[in-house]
Design a protein around this nucleic acid. Structure first.
Lengths: 188, 188
DNA sequence: ATAGAATCGGAACGCACGCCCCGTTTCAGG
DNA sequence: CCTGAAACGGGGCGTGCGTTCCGATTCTAT
């Protein structure tokens, strides 16, 4: 079993086209986009997608993997920063901002459905990194101690829901999320 | 056009059965429940439901109408209470608690999708009432002035998302929502 | 060039849902 | 009763999705 047998030229080309089309489509509409639509945009048939990715979810993960990994890396870096408390809150704000521009990110971040698939290394990785940054912020005294990483997942979902509504009703972005993040600070 | 022509006995009986089954089903699973399932539970055919309600959404509204109306009435009453500020925050907490026990309430409260149907009097009514209570709380100085009723919708959606996650990860209920509601108070 | 395998594409499948049709059953007034 | 109209119910339609299949096509090693 050779993990990376050289692909035929046209196969490699089509695989890249699919990834590119999927990135654009998922970014705009998230998992809700039909697979046929991705195939159409990539100029290939639906069967071609399944030759390269075993399922729609696998394609989604292939597209989102790098982006999510960047967040995990950033979180790990910031854990060792000088003032992890401030970095933590600013970082969450950036994550939310990015997710508002990229529906795929929303879906990936909110996909912490009850039964977290153990096979899903990306999810595990990103939340471990977020947890590390949260811990650092708490040790720095900038975030309440009674918050854990599962609270963080809930918080992110809530903030994303709030920002979606804010956008739909042309209210200034980030206000409610700012209130929520402020509420994470310990009582003064 | 006689608005309430006396229904035949079996028709009335089946209509009630449908409403009862729909209430239970919607309460447990929200709008996601298939209509066939409601028909099965009511012991009728799917066609019978459509004889009494023109669409699934109409059935949903018939089921949720009273419940939503109760919240609107309560909000109006509390607007005239002695300390509307405290009442406002406690009221929001109760609404969220109830919605966590009743997925139909969640769907109804979050159904403030971008294009609010003008025909939907129930939605309009409840949000007007919530807005009145919000205004009273603000006049009493208990809630920040820069919050409006569309913020309230966003806030409710966010809180419901957070509480859903909290339940899935067996975290104590209401903590994050409490934080969020506290953040609505003016700076001390 | 040619054979043979890898790849392609889109028609076809299975499923689930909201909704409608229509032969059959049940009610209620004369 | 008895009969016409009202109501029933479940099978069927249209839709949209993810997925699979297979004949046609294209690439590459010889």
């Amino acid at each position: 079993m050779t993990p990376d047998k050289p692909l035929r030229a046209d196969a490699r080309r089509n695989r890249d086209r699919v990834l590119q089309a999927a990135e654009a489509a998922f970014s705009a509409e998230g998992m809700a986009v039909p697979l046929d639509e991705i195939a159409r945009r990539a100029g290939v048939g639906a069967g071609t997608i399944y030759r390269h990715f075993p399922s729609k979810e696998a394609l989604f993960e292939a597209v989102i993997h790098d982006r999510i990994g960047q967040f995990a890396d950033e979180a790990r870096t910031l854990s060792a920063a000088e003032r992890p408390g401030e970095e933590f809150l600013a970082f969450l704000g950036r994550v939310i901002d990015q997710a508002m521009l990229n529906k795929a990110l929303c879906d990936a971040l909110e996909a912490a459905g009850s039964p977290v698939k153990p096979s899903d290394g990306v999810q595990r990785d990103v939340w471990e990194a977020f947890g590390a940054l949260l811990g650092a912020a708490q040790r720095a005294g900038a975030v309440r101690a009674d918050v854990d990483v599962s609270d963080l997942r809930a918080l992110l979902s809530g903030a994303l829901a709030m920002e979606r509504h804010a956008r739909d009703s042309d209210r200034p972005a980030g206000r409610l999320t700012g209130l929520l993040l402020d509420a994470l600070r310990p009582r003064p």
